[in-house]
Amino acid sequence: MADLGNTFDKLKGDLKGKAGEASGDSHLEAEGKTESAAAGLKGAAQDAGDTLKGVVDGVKDAFTKKD
């Protein structure tokens, strides 16, 4: 699950992008969109890592269970 920091960074980037769009500042808009996308990718990578860890743990459990 993505952490709170990533969620905050994504929201901050979204807000910065919208502020840039509203003010006509294309640099600020692009910066905000970039920050938002980076936070989203980081969160997705963490989610994928968590999923992979769950799969590995499941495989380990399958081989270590004794009846």
Rank of each mutant, 00 (worst) to 15 (best):
N6Q: 10
T7N: 07
S26C: 15
F63W: 12
T34C: 11
K18A: 06
K60R: 15
H27M: 14
V59H: 00
L15I: 07
A30V: 02
S26H: 13
A62D: 01
K42W: 11
G40H: 02
G40L: 02
D9Q: 10
H27K: 14
L4H: 14
T51D: 00
D57G: 04
Q46L: 00
D3V: 10
G40D: 00
L52D: 09
L11F: 12
L41E: 08
K18Q: 03
A38L: 11
E21L: 10
V59T: 14
E31V: 03
T34Y: 13
D47A: 10
T7L: 00
A48F: 09
S23R: 02
K16G: 01
A2D: 01
L41C: 12
G54F: 06
G54M: 08
H27E: 13
G54I: 07
K16T: 05
L52Q: 07
K18Y: 00
D61R: 10
D67E: 12
K10D: 07
V59P: 02
K16H: 05
D14C: 08
G24P: 05
E35N: 06
G13L: 01
K60C: 12
G54E: 01
F8E: 12
K33C: 02
A37Q: 14
K60S: 13
A39L: 07
K10S: 08
T34R: 13
G17M: 06
N6T: 13
K33A: 05
L15D: 02
K42H: 10
G17I: 00
T64C: 06
G20Q: 09
G54R: 04
G40W: 08
K12D: 09
G24M: 08
T7A: 08
A22V: 07
A19L: 12
K65E: 06
T51K: 00
A37R: 09
K16N: 08
G13E: 01
V56D: 06
S26Q: 14
G5C: 15
L41H: 13
G13F: 04
M1S: 14
K53T: 08
E35M: 05
A45Q: 03
F63V: 05
L52G: 03
D67G: 07
A19I: 14
D14L: 03
A19W: 00
G17Y: 09
T51Y: 04
A37W: 08
A62R: 03
S23G: 12
A48H: 12
K65C: 09
D50A: 12
E35R: 09
H27D: 15
K65W: 06
S26N: 15
E29P: 04
A19F: 04
V59N: 10
D25T: 14
G43Q: 01
G49Q: 10
K10E: 11
G40K: 11
G58I: 02
G43T: 11
A39C: 13
A48S: 12
F63T: 14
G54T: 01
D67C: 11
A2I: 02
A22L: 13
A30E: 07
G20F: 09
V59A: 01
S23P: 06
D61P: 09
H27Q: 15
H27P: 04
D47H: 05
T7D: 10
A37P: 08
A30F: 05
V55K: 11
S26E: 15
K10H: 10
F8A: 13
K65H: 14
K33V: 05
